[in-house]
Design a binder for these strands. Structure first.
Length: 591
RNA sequence: GGUUCCAUGGUCUAGUUGGUCUAGGACGCCUCCCUGUCACGGAGGAGAUCGCGGGUUCAAACCCCGCUGGGACCGCCA
């Protein structure tokens, strides 16, 4: 190395530096060789600046430039120069300047990369992951991770300023029932026994409250061995906090201030956290068909069961008789936009939600048309006024159980909004969803399970539902989810802090006292030693970073993510291990 | 566990009623020329067992079956 230190990042060179000698280090984005004059675009994490090589400035440097290829790592020293008016490149942040190179050194050569390192490249995902370190050189990717870092530092600053203590909790923890599948870690010292990687620091943070730390915060990695999605990775990061002696409203207010600070620090957005809508879970489901509604657009669900009861359309009346619903959404001026082919495609798509079909009518020139028009003609007047239809509208109907209708129309309203271009992508629409059911039915277990987790405090007035002979699943919880643009950003609750309620809760979940003792005995015992009232929340850092950087996949804001099959193409994890390693752990693996 | 889509030089892709494909294009790469480019330009060149295996056929990148790998979705995700 020449020994000269970098004086500035390439992307930060500006007109004020004109005439100054600077030293830059970075990667070659592009070389343009005009013969005796060579231009090189030099890239580092802050951006790109143009270098100019000519024997006018240095014969040696020009010679070096002739050898330079894409992705070489170079170090140069030169003088910042204002470009002539005609040579200014308005597309570049540094387009008004260039660096006349007096000294150049190649620090590392590079093979031709397997794909172009530039934003907007369309390369298959596996190749990008295999050469992740190259993909991460793209400005877009660096921007995402830089933004993620800013969310973390903004959060840490907020928590520090509000008296929260950063306390680490174990990664080698105990497997507990309920919830997601655990990642297990075999114990060498106790063959046949396993640690579990935490699905969240939930129990530990509650115990920290029990220990009197009062306010806890942690950027915590969490592990869940479930199948992946675009917004779900097997390991992910939570901005996790817990506080003693605060009620639900106070915690929500604190989170509002926290989010406001993040939005201001990270994306310079001035959001009014006092205006976050607070929706009851039931209301969110009724109006939007989702517990994480996207509120950037309308297209609400309307219950037309009462009107449809009067028709002879057995698909509708039959669903109602079975205790189901008929609901509708209106695609404003959608009658011409949505072709028969598109509707057929959607009819097919919604079958995955359990819907048997999709009914629709078009309202044009005062008349209904479409396959079911004749069945609903008798209630035309009622529908037009109930749904406030105007000319050219298209109406979709779903008739089924509450959950199928909700899933179907909840999906369709997003589809319709996208097709009709009704979504304002510049908006940040936060919402709180509160008053969740305490339990939900699991087909898998054949019993009621905790909707949130087993430590969630029921609403005070619902406590009696946990008593013998009552209907526990009518109980609602002191829990609150923060939603942004249709994504669940975070989930929190007030926790149970007394043993008798906790025991009732576990009993309602079907635990015998023996099983409860075995799984959560340490927690129940802790509750006997002065456990304070407490509550908290965990925000999904990866999702927040994804949304704030406008990405559609969580992989874009994780440096080294897994692919959709939970493998990692670069290191090829997971992999087989040696017989020796297995033997030490007392494990045997079938061939 | 299920549904669905995809796989052609380094990258992205054309090809789709089987023959005219000796597989076309763009970008990239290599050599040479070029002093104001920034999607530099000009001339020339290299580079593909069409993911793998089997089948149908006179003939398969193309049709069928299986496998592998990948994307999206459902289940799952306290």
């Amino acid at each position: 190395m020449s020994g000269k230190q970098r004086t500035v990042y390439a992307g930060l060179v500006n007109e004020k530096m004109a005439g100054q000698a600077i030293t830059l280090k970075g990667w070659v984005q592009k070389r343009r060789d005009l013969g005796g004059l060579i231009f090189v675009d030099l890239r580092d994490r802050e951006g790109i600046v143009q270098l100019t090589f000519s024997d006018e400035f240095s014969k040696d440097a020009l010679k070096t430039a002739e050898r330079i290829r894409s992705e070489y790592v170079i170090s140069i020293t030169g003088v910042v120069s204002l470009r002539a008016e005609s040579a200014i490149n308005p597309k570049m942040k540094t387009g008004k300047v260039e660096v006349l190179v007096h000294q150049a050194e190649i620090l590392a050569e590079s093979k031709t990369p397997p794909f172009d390192i530039e934003d907007g490249v369309d390369v298959n995902e596996e190749l990008k992951l295999k050469y992740r370190y190259l993909d991460l050189r793209r400005p877009e990717m660096q921007k995402g991770l830089i933004l993620r870092s800013k969310i973390m530092s903004s959060s840490m600053r907020f928590m520090e300023e509000n008296g929260f203590l950063d306390i680490e909790t174990p990664y080698l923890a105990k497997s507990t029932p309920e919830g997601a599948r655990d990642y297990l870690v075999p114990s060498r010292i106790y063959p046949g026994s396993f640690y579990a990687l935490p699905q969240s620091p939930q129990l530990f943070k509650q115990l920290l409250m029990g220990a009197g730390f009062d306010r806890y915060f942690q950027i915590a990695r969490c592990f869940r061995d479930e199948d992946l999605r675009g917004d779900r990775q097997p390991e992910f990061t939570q901005l996790d906090m817990e506080t003693s002696f605060m009620n639900q409203g106070e915690i929500m207010e604190l989170v509002n201030r926290w989010i406001t600070q993040i939005m201001s620090d990270v994306v310079k957005a001035n959001i009014d956290s006092n205006s976050f809508p607070v929706l009851h879970w039931q209301e969110a489901m009724d109006r939007f068909g989702s517990d994480k509604p996207d509120l950037r657009f309308g297209i609400e669900l309307h219950d037309v069961s009462e009107i449809m009861k009067q028709t002879n359309f057995t698909v509708f009346t039959g669903a109602i008789k079975k205790g189901g619903f008929v609901k509708a959404i209106v695609a404003p001026k959608g009658a011409t936009k949505f072709t028969r082919k598109m509707i057929d495609g959607q009819t097919d798509y919604i079958k995955r939600f359990g819907a048997k079909g999709l009914a629709w009518i078009k309202f044009e020139n005062g008349e209904f048309s479409g396959p079911i028009a004749k069945f609903v003609s008798d209630v035309k007047g009622q529908l037009v006024s109930f749904l406030s239809l105007s000319d050219g509208d298209l109406v979709f109907f779903a008739a089924d159980t509450f959950s199928v209708v909700s899933d179907t129309l909840g999906y369709l309203r997003k589809y319709v909004a996208k097709e009709l271009d009704l979504i304002d992508e510049s908006k940040w629409d936060f919402a709180w969803i509160v008053d969740w059911p305490l339990f939900e039915y699991s087909e898998d277990f054949g019993r009621w399970i905790a909707a949130h987790h087993p430590f969630t405090m029921p609403n005070e007035e619902d406590l009696h539902y946990l008593d013998d002979g009552e209907d526990p699943h009518l109980a609602h919880a002191q829990s609150y989810d923060l939603v942004l643009n249709g994504y669940e950003l975070g989930s929190g609750s007030i926790r149970i802090h007394t043993m008798d309620i906790q025991k009732k809760m576990l009993k309602a979940l079907g635990f015998t006292s023996d099983q409860a003792e075995k799984a959560f005995g340490f927690l129940l015992e802790a509750m006997e030693y002065g456990f304070p009232p407490m509550g908290g929340i965990a925000l999904g850092l990866d999702r927040l970073a994804m949304l704030l950087s406008g990405k559609e996949n969580i992989r874009e804001v994780i440096a080294f993510p897994k692919n959709s099959n939970a493998t990692e193409p670069m290191t090829k994890a997971p992999s087989r291990v040696s017989e020796k390693q297995l033997a030490e752990l007392g494990l045997r693996v079938p061939e």
